[in-house]
Write a protein that binds this DNA or RNA. Structure first.
Lengths: 339, 339
DNA sequence: GTTCCATTTGGAACCGCTCCCATGAATACT
DNA sequence: AGTATTCATGGGAGCGGTTCCAAATGGAAC
């Protein structure tokens, strides 16, 4: 590896001072156009790229964001939802000249991880994927004044930047759709109830039933964990309830796929015997058999919005709205029996 | 945000020099145990974490690896394969005190991206996801002597660190299994053929057929793109071939799921009318209907091995073996009709 | 032709850490 | 006891940028 080119050499070649080169690099206005031009030419010619570490040390900014995945959300790694979120965040960062760091807070090392990655000033801000309500890392971040945007929402840590899908409404719309189709024994498979997302979707389910004057049968509420396996076993339990449900709202597509499988294994058919609606609209949803009716999350916008909020905040334009709600959309396919 | 604690203050409090504190931080042997102890106590007490930028600037190391996703592999964001790879890499990095950066080389910006992220010395090394054979970024990396491990393999850039699954063998085993079940009209849906992975799997298919004395019918080779949509449309074309195939080997599970759908839409059944085998063993594979027979990639080991190779290399223990081949495994379920 | 002010520019002091080298203390050897 | 050697420590010079401040430059206004 040849000797790294430094700002000094650029300065010398362009016959200006280091300060001026630095100003050019940082788009400082007070550089005469012809000088700026000359410096830029030398930079290009020499293929010069300023060294990140030196820059950060002097400027106290790193141009790096961190996507933090709490260990409690480790299941997310099997969920396509995740990939798409990452993709949109990466793109938003790249577009604004930031890099994205990925971190998992894994179990016991949480604390030391936190230290190493976040206190070392390696990152300018954190995007945190929705997590357990009582995740211990959240207070640490807030206490440290770490710029933070939550993807998801939190019940009582209110004045915090966050982006979320209107989970309650989305769930309600799904259940209303099932009601409209004539169902009254509607079950739900929830996510893990220490997660706010899971609670909201369950509440949307309840809300829709109550509004329609349909009572809530606790037996028809099964708890899953957002995975296929969870959906499968929750569904098996629900199938044993008497009288059995005629429709199921699963709080995620992955769980819906698991439920689908359980229903199939029990010798029943979707939607003929049981109608099924999911949540997320992950790519496989439209390729399942039958195609899955589901509540579409604007996944890409979710990530992009969160990143944008954080970047705006970091660059001195604090977003006026602290909590952004994106609207989900009911996508009607075959599994609900509407056709 | 309170004033950052520096190494100076730790030094003063522990009544030693900055040098000694630095030695303690870097596990340098020549510090008397009792002094080391004292310093560590002060560090803990003050909750001190050395600042990454300063460290990097002085030491010329960042403790950051970058996972590079070529734009040609953007489809990967809908593939669960990806999430699991990321997870295992993240874990491997964390375990060795490295952070992971995520980068996509997106289209036209490829070059400038390359500059910004890689030439700025923001990363110590790169893990690159398998890509087009002629991806322009590969030569750039090699030319810059950037420490690099390829996840996948490359046909002629040989003396490069890489980790791969034995794709050809895996494909061959799958096809041999279909042959053993009595099929002779076996089709394949390949990945995009500018990718080495896709070529290898197709070659495994051919190899198995030839070895069994079954001729290769070009009509039975459909090109997909590793996505469900691609699998779907490739399968539709294959269904029109006369005489039609009685079995299909899809070079990825996502394509197999698409193919499954196409077969179903055509009013045919798997495995009764057409036997189907996939590749990858992503989590949904076992939840499909019918459960998908597939070639399991040790996805987690793939990522972990790649990260380990790179870290070993960076830390001065260059792995003896440049190209690691991991063995895939045929997982027999329902879709091939073996039961 | 001065004076004044705004604009550009250069110099120098950091930013917080690492690491080489010199120093001094402690131990080993003759 | 004196000298050589080893080991632990401190001091200082970077690492490659940014940024404050003061100086230089060049017009405009008088």
């Amino acid at each position: 590896m040849e000797q790294q080119i430094t700002i000094r050499q650029i300065a010398k070649l362009a016959e200006v001072s280091r300060s001026t080169v630095s100003r050019v690099l940082n788009n400082h206005p007070s550089v005469r156009p012809e000088v700026r031009q000359r410096v830029l030419e030398v930079i290009k010619e020499q293929d010069y790229v300023p060294q990140a570490a030196a820059r950060s040390l002097a400027s106290r900014r790193t141009n790096v964001l961190t996507l933090l995945i709490p260990r409690s959300s480790a299941f997310i790694f099997t969920d396509p939802f995740f990939s798409l979120t990452i993709q949109s965040i990466t793109e938003a960062c790249t577009a604004r000249d930031y890099s994205l760091m990925l971190s998992m807070a894994t179990g016991a090392e949480e604390r030391s991880f936190y230290q190493r990655v976040l206190r070392s000033r390696i990152t300018d801000g954190v995007l945190m994927l929705s997590s357990d309500i009582d995740d211990p890392i959240l207070p640490l971040l807030i206490n440290d004044d770490m710029p933070l945007v939550l993807i998801g929402s939190h019940p009582y840590l209110q004045p915090m930047y966050s982006v979320d899908v209107a989970n309650r409404d989305g769930a309600a719309v799904a259940v209303e759709h099932l009601l409209r189709l004539g169902h009254s024994r509607i079950a739900t498979i929830t996510g893990p109830l220490q997660m706010n997302t899971a609670i909201d979707r369950r509440d949307g389910y309840k809300q829709a039933l109550l509004k329609a004057g349909v009572g809530i049968d606790p037996q028809l509420i099964g708890e899953g964990d957002f995975t296929q396996e969870g959906g499968y076993s929750a569904m098996r339990t629900l199938l044993d309830v008497q009288p059995p449900p005629t429709a199921v709202f699963a709080a995620s597509d992955m769980m819906a796929l698991g439920a689908l499988r359980a229903i199939y294994d029990a010798g029943l058919r979707v939607p003929d015997d049981i109608a099924l609606v999911g949540f997320d609209d992950i790519p496989i949803a439209s390729f399942a058999t039958p195609e899955l009716t589901t509540v579409r999350q604007p996944i890409q916008r979710l990530g992009a919005t969160a990143a944008t909020m954080l970047l705006d905040h970091l660059e001195g334009n604090p977003p006026a709205i602290h909590h952004q709600q994106l609207k989900p959309e009911l996508i009607i396919r075959k599994s609900c029996g509407a056709f």
